[in-house]
Design a protein around this nucleic acid. Structure first.
Lengths: 185, 185
DNA sequence: TTCTATACCGAACAGATTGTTCAATAAACA
DNA sequence: TGTTTATTGAACAATCTGTTCGGTATAGAA
C-alpha cells in the first residue's frame, strides 16, 4: 500500500463516512453513487478515480474496518495486547464481543445490513481467530465432526450470537453474550 | 388466493423457471428484468402485470418453494406424512435434509445465492419447525439460555450444516448430515 | 517561496435499466 | 359463439452508471 496524498486520504475518508452514514438509513443495494458523492461532497469523477464501483467501495470499507478490529488480536508480538497466546482462554472472544459491541463500531451497521460480501469477509476473519483457538474447543463433539465443519460451526455461532444481541434490543453485556456463546458452541 | 387463468399460470411458471435458471448462473442482484423476460419469452408489460418489481418476484418465488417443502411437514392431519407428531424424534430434520438435498430442489440454488430476503424467509420457516420440536432439544445448555436465543441457534445450525454440505462438494448423505446437525446443536 | 506533478472539480455524455402506457391481438371460459 | 381478460410490442420518461475532458486548486519537493 503506497502512501496517499493528504487530498486522497481526505476524499477516501469522506466517502467511507458517507457510506457508513447511509448504511444506517437504507440497504446497501438501494444506495446510489449519486447519494454517496453528495453526502461526501465529492465530485463524481473523483469517486470513480478511487473506487471502480460501489461494490469495490464496500469491499475496501470492510477491509479497513476489519483491519482495525482484528489486527490487534492477530499481532504476534508487540508492546500492546497480544491476546493471542497470553490471555486466559476465553478472553479473545470476550474481547472481540466487547470491541464489536461498542456503540461507535461501524461493523455492527454492516452486520445488520446483511450484505453477502460483508458476511463473507467477517466469517473469513472470524475463522482465522477460531482456527488459532481451536484447542480450546476440543470436546466429545469436536472429535466426531470434521474439522472444517467444526470451525464453520463456531464462527457461525459467534455471528448468530451477535445477531441475536442486535435484534433483541442490545440488552446483554459482553460477559453474558460470551457465556451464551460458549454454552451454545 | 383466487384461481388463475391458464394463461396467467403459464406466464407465472415461465417467469419462475427463468429466474431459477438465471440464479444458477449469476447473483440475483445482477440479473435484469430484461434477461428474465427474454428467457421466459414474455412481454415486458406482462412481467410487470404479474410482479411489481424484481424483488417481489423473488419474494413470491420463495413463498412458492417453501410452500412445497414445508407445508407437508406442517400438515396437522391428512392421509400422507404428518411427520409432525407421529414419527420418531429425529426424522423431521432428517426428512427435511433429504428433501432439501435432492438435486432438483431449487431451494439450494437460492441458498447458495445468499440473498438476504431468501435467508430471512428460510430462517422464519425453519424456526416454526424448530419451535414445534423444541422439547426434543431440551438439555443442560437449553436451560441456561433464553428460549429465543436457543431457537435462533438451532435454526442457524441447520442452515450452517446445509451450507457446509453445499460448499464442500455435497459428499455427505442426509443421514450423516443429520448426525452432524444433532452433534453440533 | 516557487515549481511541478497530480488530485479534484463539474459538466456533459452514452448506454443500460426500470417501470409505465396504450392500442392491437390472442386466448380463455361460459 | 361471444364476452372478458391476459398478452403483446413498442414507445416513453426517469434514473443510474461509468467515462471523458479542460480548467482549477493543492500537496510536497526543491
Amino acid at each position: 500500500m503506497e502512501k496517499l496524498d493528504r487530498r486522497q486520504r481526505k476524499t477516501r475518508e469522506a466517502i467511507f463516512s458517507a457510506l457508513i452514514e447511509l448504511l444506517s438509513q437504507k440497504d446497501f443495494g438501494k444506495i446510489t453513487v449519486g447519494e454517496i458523492i453528495e453526502k461526501a461532497d465529492v465530485g463524481r469523477a473523483t469517486f470513480y478515480a478511487h473506487f471502480e464501483t460501489k461494490e469495490f467501495l464496500l469491499k475496501e470499507l470492510c477491509e479497513d474496518l476489519f483491519c482495525h478490529v482484528f489486527d490487534a488480536l492477530r499481532e504476534p508480538e508487540g508492546e500492546h495486547h497480544h491476546l493471542f497466546q497470553c490471555d486466559p482462554p476465553d478472553s479473545v472472544f470476550l474481547h472481540l464481543f466487547s470491541h464489536l459491541m461498542r456503540n461507535d463500531n461501524h461493523i455492527l451497521k454492516l452486520l445488520s445490513c446483511n450484505h453477502d460480501l460483508f458476511l463473507r469477509y467477517f466469517t473469513e476473519q472470524l475463522k482465522e481467530i477460531v482456527q488459532s483457538q481451536l484447542p480450546m474447543f476440543e470436546n466429545r463433539k469436536s472429535e466426531k465432526l470434521p474439522e472444517e465443519f467444526w470451525i464453520d460451526h463456531i464462527a457461525s455461532v459467534f455471528i448468530q450470537t451477535l445477531r441475536f444481541w442486535l435484534e433483541t434490543g442490545r440488552k446483554e453485556s459482553p460477559e453474558t453474550l460470551t457465556e451464551y456463546f460458549y454454552l451454545a458452541v
